[in-house]
Nucleic acid binder design. Structure first.
Length: 892
RNA sequence: GCCGUCUUAGCUCAGCGGUAGAGCACUCGCUUCACACGCGAUAGGUCAGAAGUUCAAAUCUUCUAGACGGCACCA
């Protein structure tokens, strides 16, 4: 078998995915074991307008690792893919598209608009799903879902109606977050804070009616004064007590407003007098409620001032209006002063427009009942279990405790239109269909509420709507098999927005948990240490990384990031794993060079009397498998990667294959069979991380096929992705072999060290003298050929006492005293320095140990095995130091 | 304001109560018949600072400094 000289990721990526998909390997139905337990993950549905970014690549990698791992273990495994309809984003795309055609949404009408949106979705909505195929994601495409699929939409209607009927959903006039650009309301979670250091605080003088005096109020939004309907002061504020009950002649408006006393006002802050604009500020709204104040709306939905703002201001943008109000106050002599003031502005998460708090009639969900259910789950049962637990469990719990009503209506056309109808008197009828609404209303003249629901309302149902629940159908085989899902892998930015809501809605409507575990990934930052973003232009495209380093390298690099940790992007690190892939490729290639009659054969590893290296690698392999399964079980992907990396590179390549080189090149078929068997098993444990490379190599190994499959997949066509995942057998961990191999490795390393330090050319082959105990001598004798090979020596002389010429370099290990004859090569000064250096290091360690052992508190209180271990180490050090010292003395 | 995280080798990061680790970069040496995307060998850290708990602290506690995150408030 002849393999190419270097691994070409592209070639492997091209055909394997198609074969896996076409053969149905990703679907749970591939599992033929009727008793198989289920394992399921639902994907956090990416936005249909999106394309793959590094955050997706990271999350998808972890989900795929888990899915492939569980599938190989024989679970009936489902990773369900899909996308969400992204209300605002799609809406914006269509509006832009129309604008370039010189049209507006109103001109074409709702129906045409939605038709265009669907067309857009058909055309571009698959970008991300195609990119997922490139990633190697083993999702079941036959179960792909979209939040606006008919069944998922029915689920939305059902949930809305049920919550309404139970009194959890209501329609009300509240101060909401309004985005004047998108012309829709936003939930609190879709609003972000932006600090502006160059903000201002304007002090406006309001004339007190009939007094000739003024009362100064401070504001950051002067234009809202046009909607003022009161001024409030604290009731216990002596300065203003006499003013309560009097009126203000509100400038620029000709209106007279009251001065009221309200506890909300902080007498210490500003002037102690607050202008009250109930229709444009949440706190003012509350004051207005308490004092029965008029709610005067002075703005339109696009952020311009409306008729109520007065003729001079009508039609002006809110910021222009602000300037004009300030100018007017100044010319009236009513502007007291302007202070610099750092303000935090609420901005729309998506378009960064300053959000306007505005009085508006919207639909809300009262979260009390669901919140309590979720709190009970996390507090009493610890569900979901967050990985990492700190800080997410606490943050999540605290958020739930302070949960407010959720604004769910959006002034958009693209999405799930609210199933509510109004009769001509404005009475509302919530119903699952228009027919039902007509029945309830007893009228045919109904108008449907034009608004749609928040996209997160539908994605909140994702854990069960995707399995067929839609209100009519509440029991399906998939719900039974796959809900609760096992784990959710997602970013921390949507824990509140999505994860928490899914937990609550799933519990409420199915009585089940949405998932047991939540793996929270960190953020992949740009090279500058800031989150990747278009505006910073510091993004790294996963597809470019796939092209440059291969999908597998990118995947295993992403998996190597500690769970939940942020990481600064660095190409060099992927390169490490590109090199890793190539290393594995070449190791396999080498082992197959002369292995024409070898074949994967599990029994070959269990034979008695195997050489040390074989017993050792089997032990290392099994230990790695055990540790790997433990790490994955705890979602410690980075530990898993490190185990794999070190097993393949250090144990397998640097030692085992190097030790076996002669056997491989000479065509020893028994040895090759063992090597091939070990590689095959190792590839299996690597497969979840590097699916393409491992499949490519596995297919080339002699003797691979469906016979190696987990029993659940015995009838499927041969593929590593259905092979049995190695569990590691404790019985195959061979302590003696590890210890003996350790002695051999230590010896070889010391000899190499001498060669390097004494700058002896690798081409010079010298004689190694060693002295060791009788049992250790046996070990060295048995491995003479290997030692000579790896130490690049020509002769090994083993005896009870070290007999070496004076012109030699010396070293010691725990098991051996070593001398290299260097007749004509040795530099005595160098050798002296080398020995002194080593003695120095060991003496330092010895001093530390003696300090500890001399401490009676330590000896009394520390665990006995600790003390014993230190004593042993101390005596080893003693022996080594004195041997080195003897060597040094002989040189002087 | 409240809650929380981070600060470890030049860089990017693991480790989180028992002798400081990895990859990359650096230094030295290698056309050693799989791999230079490689091989071998070094060097490099008072684990941000201070105090405390402990026989033992990078690891636990408290404080300080710097970086950052979430929530609340913002006239």
């Amino acid at each position: 078998m002849e393999l190419a000289k270097a691994y070409d990721p592209r070639a492997a990526e091209e055909h394997h995915y198609k074969r896996w998909e076409d053969n149905g390997f990703f679907a749970p139905e591939i599992n033929q074991d009727p008793n198989a337990a289920s394992f399921s993950i639902v994907i956090p549905p990416p936005n249909v307008t999106g394309s793959l970014h590094m955050g997706h690549a990271l999350q998808h990698t972890l989900m795929d690792v888990l899915t492939r791992w569980k599938r190989m273990q024989g679970y009936r495994t489902l990773w369900l893919p899909g996308t969400d309809h992204a209300g605002i984003s799609v809406q914006r795309k269509i509006v832009e598209q129309l604008r370039s055609d010189g049209k507006t949404p109103l001109e074409i009408g709702r129906e045409e608009f939605i038709a265009r949106a669907w067309k857009w979705k058909e055309q571009y909505g698959d970008t991300i799903t195609e990119q997922m195929r490139r990633e190697g994601a083993s999702v079941d495409w036959s179960r792909q879902r979209f939040t606006m699929d008919e069944s998922l939409s029915a689920a939305v209607r059902e949930v809305f109606c049920t919550l309404y009927e139970q009194g959890w959903i209501y329609r009300g006039l509240r101060i909401v977050n309004w985005c004047p650009k998108d012309k829709t309301v936003l939930s609190d979670l879709e609003v972000k804070e932006e600090t502006k250091k160059d903000g201002k605080l304007w002090y406006l003088k309001y004339p007190i009616a009939g007094t000739g005096r003024t009362l100064t109020v401070a504001t950051t939004r002067p234009e809202t004064m046009l909607g003022d309907t009161a001024v409030a002061v604290n009731p216990s504020d002596e300065r203003y007590r006499d003013l309560v009950g009097k009126s203000i002649d509100l400038p620029l408006t000709g209106r007279q407003i009251a001065i009221v006393a309200d506890e909300y006002v902080d007498a210490e802050f500003g002037t102690g007098a607050v202008k009250v604009t109930p229709a444009h500020d949440p706190n003012d709204y509350q004051i207005g409620q308490r004092h029965d104040l008029e709610q005067l709306l002075v703005m339109n939905d696009d952020g311009t001032m409306n008729t109520a703002a007065g003729r001079d201001f009508e039609g002006l943008d809110r910021f222009k209006a602000r300037e004009k109000v300030v100018e007017r106050f100044e010319s009236l002599g009513l502007l007291e002063k302007i202070d610099d003031y750092e303000v935090t502005l609420p901005v729309c998460e998506r378009c960064k427009t300053v959000v306007e708090p505005i009085l508006s009639e919207q639909w809300f969900v009262k979260m009390d009942e669901m919140r309590d259910m979720a709190l009970e789950l996390i507090r009493d049962k610890g569900v979901p279990h967050f990985f990492p637990q700190v800080p997410h469990e606490k943050v999540y719990t605290a958020w739930l405790e302070n949960l407010k009503d959720w604004t769910i209506s959006r002034q958009l056309w693209w999405g799930h239109q609210i199933p509510a109808w109004y009769d001509k008197d404005g009475n509302v009828f919530v119903a699952r269909s228009e027919e039902e609404a007509r029945e309830k209303a007893g009228s045919d003249e109904l108008t449907r509420d034009p608004d749609v629901l928040d996209t997160w309302f539908s994605s909140g149902l994702w854990a069960f709507s995707t399995f067929g629940w839609n209100g009519q159908v509440t029991e399906t085989a998939d719900l039974e098999a796959f809900l609760p899902t096992d784990v959710l892998v997602t970013g921390r930015d949507i824990i509140f927005l999505w994860v928490s809501r899914m937990i609550m809605l799933t519990r409420k409507f199915t009585g089940k948990k949405a998932f047991e575990d939540v793996v929270v990934t960190g953020t992949v930052l740009g090279k500058d240490g800031k989150p990747m973003s278009k505006s910073r232009n510091n993004g790294v495209d996963p597809l470019e990384m796939f092209d440059k380093f291969g999908v597998d390298a990118t995947r295993i690099y992403l998996a190597s990031i500690a769970t939940g940790a942020d990481i600064k992007w660095n190409d060099l690190l992927i390169e490490t794993y590109r090199n890793f892939a190539n290393k594995i490729w070449n190791a396999t290639r080498f082992c197959l060079l002369n292995a024409d009659e070898a074949s994967v054969e599990k029994a070959a590893l269990g034979e008695v009397g195997l050489p040390l290296a074989d017993r050792w690698i089997v032990s290392r392999l099994n230990q790695t498998e055990i540790d790997l399964n433990l790490a994955l079980g705890k979602y410690e992907f980075h530990t898993a990667v490190s185990l794999l990396y070190h097993f393949f590179w250090d144990d397998l390549c640097d030692w085992y294959i190097e030790l076996k080189k002669d056997e491989i090149t000479s065509g020893d078929q028994a040895a090759s069979t063992r090597i091939v068997t070990i590689i095959e098993q190792a590839l299996r444990m690597l497969h979840p991380f590097m699916p393409y490379l491992t499949e490519e190599l596995w297919q080339k190994l002699p003797g691979t096929g469906s016979s190696l499959h987990n029993h659940a997949y015995s009838s499927a066509e041969g593929t590593i992705m259905l092979a049995d995942f190695p569990t590691g057998e404790a019985g195959l961990i061979d302590g003696a072999a590890e210890k003996e191999m350790g002695a051999v490795i230590d010896l070889i390393k010391k000899v190499r060290n001498i060669r390097a330090e004494m700058t002896i050319s690798p081409s010079i082959k010298f004689t190694i003298h060693i002295a060791a105990s009788a049992p250790d001598q046996e070990i060295f004798k048995a491995n003479e050929a290997q030692i000579l090979k790896l130490a690049r020596a020509e002769k090994l002389i083993i005896s009870d006492v070290l007999a070496a010429p004076k012109a030699s370099a010396k070293a010691v290990t725990n098991e051996a005293r070593i001398a290299i004859s260097l007749e004509g090569l040795i530099d005595f000064e160098k050798e002296k320095a080398r020995l002194s250096n080593q003695i120095g290091k060991l003496t330092e360690e010895k001093a530390r140990l003696e300090g500890q052992l001399g401490n009676s508190n330590f000896v009394e209180k520390a665990p006995k095995e600790k003390v014993t271990a230190l004593r042993e180490r101390a005596s080893e050090l003693d022996a080594q130091i004195s041997a080195l010292q003897t060597n040094l003395d002989s040189l002087i």
